[in-house]
Design a protein around this nucleic acid. Structure first.
Lengths: 256, 256
DNA sequence: TCAAAAGTGTTCGCTATACACCCATGG
DNA sequence: CCATGGGTGTATAGCGAACACTTTTGA
């Protein structure tokens, strides 16, 4: 969660009600105590060799000037996923290709102000969608390998997000959501290596990837098959239909 | 969540405050609307051939007489996991070997009474722990393959729980938490087949399982190596230390 | 006594792994 | 021109898949 968003929420409520609330006015009452509920979003993007996440700088206490994930309070008329997407749009003007809930954080004292539980999502976006999309001046991309101290328990949230991404990619081809429509095999390999924190042999990786049967060669490839025969800068694209077909037939896993 | 628990919570609050509240009394107030937060627990147990889940029958509307997962409201001084464990203890007197959060359900209208978000856990218990432990008369075990219509969105919760269990067992040896300390390979195979919804060749399964190096033969095995040579009813046990060791060394996956 | 379950071992084909050469690109 | 990266093929070993026979157990 994010204090800037909280302020924003308060203003909204004031505007839509009497307009002259004091800080002490308590408008929503329940028979039992209810925790505040927020969503936070760990936004991943892949650039050349590195997995990156988007952080926003907090403007107020607590954790003023610390970096944190974008997020905000759940409204009563939206699901958590809708909330995560809305906050993302509002704070960063980004619309992810893929968004997925991975954990809910509930430690009693994780927010010093009040009891807050946070439903956390990870989102995947293509680098080309970032250009111009990220208009929050306090927002900044960080390499996952080089993350500063984060606000609240956001270090923990990040580590859980990375684990979730790592595990998820074993079961679904979400890696392609981080790449452009057309990509080279080495690019794909660097992505897998970043996510799985591993290293693969180039030739074996390519062989395995291609024989999955879910990639097709780009039509734009220069068919410059020289006499001495070899093409260059080959691009491929992911074919979701092929994947669907395979997924239904076999119990299919991308195992690297 | 579970209406019985809600009633219980209300009584507790009344007892600890003035003692003469009316149903309309609203004691907890916030500047923003807060949803109610509950935990629900999908308790798995394995018996002979089948994965089972524990359901409790609802005593009041809505969904009176429907079956649902045990659960209840999050208190302000406990984490969600503590809440799930407490509710489990209170409602079924069970203490699981393993408990794990798998999803948070937030659809706006999933509870007809008020906005409720539910943090769902799956729990694994050994069948031997059930005997005498399950003292809720309205609680009953159901085969996963034979589940009645459930209250709220609990069908959906169950399907998510099954998927989570299926995926988790690829990464961690949680299957053993559903078996007795000593078990036979065919028992283990039936468990894996139930969880993964698949079928394996007996001999290949055994070979693969044993060469993982995380099982050791029971000392109680009858070493009746007859001249014509074969032992009977062989039991094995899981060695967590061996697993730990392997997990650290390699990026280790139980892949079936 | 008979059917069903469980202990055991071997063969075969595929796939993961390891590895080498050549060309294109850019500094 | 040289270093780096990327396109391509092959040989081997180990693992997964298919498979049969025998003993034990219990109905």
């Amino acid at each position: 969660m994010n204090i800037q968003m909280q302020e924003k929420e308060e203003k909204t409520i004031v505007d839509t009600t009497t307009g002259n609330e004091t800080e002490e006015t308590l408008q929503y009452s329940y028979k039992h105590p209810h925790p505040a509920v927020t969503t936070d979003c760990v936004i991943f993007c892949f650039d050349k060799k590195d997995l990156n996440v988007l952080l926003v700088k907090r403007g107020v206490e607590p954790y003023k000037d610390s970096w944190a994930f974008p997020g905000g309070f759940l409204r009563m008329d939206e699901s958590a996923e809708e909330c995560a997407l809305r906050e993302l749009k509002e704070e960063t003007n980004l619309t992810p290709v893929h968004i997925e809930q991975f954990h809910t954080f509930t430690k009693v004292d994780r927010d010093p102000r009040e009891r807050v539980i946070t439903i956390a999502y990870f989102a995947l976006i293509k680098k080309s969608d970032v250009i111009g999309g990220d208009d929050a001046s306090e927002a900044q991309w960080f390499k996952v390998k080089d993350i500063p101290q984060l606000a609240f328990d956001h270090d923990f949230i990040l580590s859980k997000a990375l684990t979730a991404l790592n595990q998820k990619i074993h079961f679904e081809p979400i890696g392609f959501d981080l790449l452009e429509t057309e990509f080279s095999i080495p690019e794909l390999q660097r992505l897998y290596e970043a996510i799985l924190n591993a290293h693969f042999d180039r030739r074996n990786f390519q062989k395995k990837m291609l024989q999955l049967g879910i990639l097709e060669e780009s039509k734009n490839n220069v068919k410059k098959k020289n006499p001495k025969g070899r093409s260059k800068n080959k691009k491929w694209r992911f074919i979701p239909e092929k994947y669907e077909e395979m997924r239904i037939n076999k119990q299919f896993r991308l195992e690297f």
